[in-house]
């Protein structure tokens, strides 16, 4: 870890009740992610990666343990999820396997929406959205609807949207799974640039081993536990 800790999770546990008895989806995970750090979380299906993202992204409460953002405890077993919306809006950007763009908004409107939700004036939001799209070579697609964009372009727009509010933390769940090797690499390089240029902490959950060289650190999950980790420096 190089900078101050942006995300800290402490003894994070999540149990689900099923017909076959309780399932320990996450079992006492502790992890710190620093500003400017690109962390890859690897692991087989059912290892707890997505549960970790849900808890770290304040989308679900842990059964026990805590989530801290920039030194502030934000989530715990009894946290009010609805009240965490404000924190998500300001401090966390999400990118998923599917771009999840709103189909009736153009690329720039999808980006501007994230800003307007954070009370940025519509004209300013749109202008900033255009600048961000231009930075990722999408200026010419700004007015295109998602249906008119390629898979790679959609995913890049989703990244731009996650970046729009300049959140200190970006959580990405299998962001390259639906892309070919070249486009998948492009997206990972964007994350690398964002982390380096903006000091954003980026956590990427992935199965994809093709871009491991770009991560500062790789964490392995198995059976809900963080079983090993290693640092890979460029």
């Amino acid at each position: 870890m190089s900078g101050p800790s942006v995300l800290s999770v402490r003894s994070l546990t999540r149990h689900y009740a099923t017909g076959a008895g309780p399932v320990r989806a996450l079992d006492g995970v502790s992890l710190d992610v620093a500003a400017g750090e690109l962390v890859g979380i690897f692991g087989p299906s059912g290892s707890g990666k997505s549960t970790f993202l849900m808890l770290a992204g304040l989308l679900e409460n842990p059964t026990s343990g805590e989530v801290w953002l920039a030194g502030q405890r934000v989530s715990h077993a009894g946290a009010d999820l609805d009240a965490l919306r404000e924190i998500r809006r300001r401090r966390i950007g999400f990118v998923f396997q599917k771009a999840n763009l709103i189909p009736f908004l153009s690329a720039v409107e999808n980006v501007a929406l994230a800003l307007e939700i954070a009370d940025v004036a519509p004209a300013d939001a749109r202008a900033h959205g255009r600048r961000l799209l231009a930075a990722l070579d999408l200026a010419h697609r700004a007015e295109s609807l998602p249906a008119r964009l390629s898979g790679g372009e959609q995913q890049r727009v989703a990244v731009v949207r996650a970046l729009a509010n300049a959140p200190p933390l970006i959580l990405a769940d299998e962001p390259t799974a639906a892309l070919d090797r070249v486009r998948g690499r492009q997206v990972m390089e964007i994350f690398r640039r964002i982390a380096a240029a903006h000091g954003t902490a980026v956590v990427v959950i992935t199965h994809d081993p093709r871009s491991t060289d770009l991560f500062d650190r790789i964490v392995h999950f198995e059976d809900g536990r963080m079983c090993a980790g290693k640092v890979e420096q460029d």
């Binding site: 998500r88 809006r89 999400f94 709103i102 994230a114 939700i117």
Partner: peptide, 13 residues
């Protein structure tokens, strides 16, 4: 509903 969930995820009030 999917778009509404997305709005909530983005922190929309």
């Amino acid at each position: 509903l999917h778009e509404i969930a997305l709005l909530k995820l983005m922190g929309a009030r």
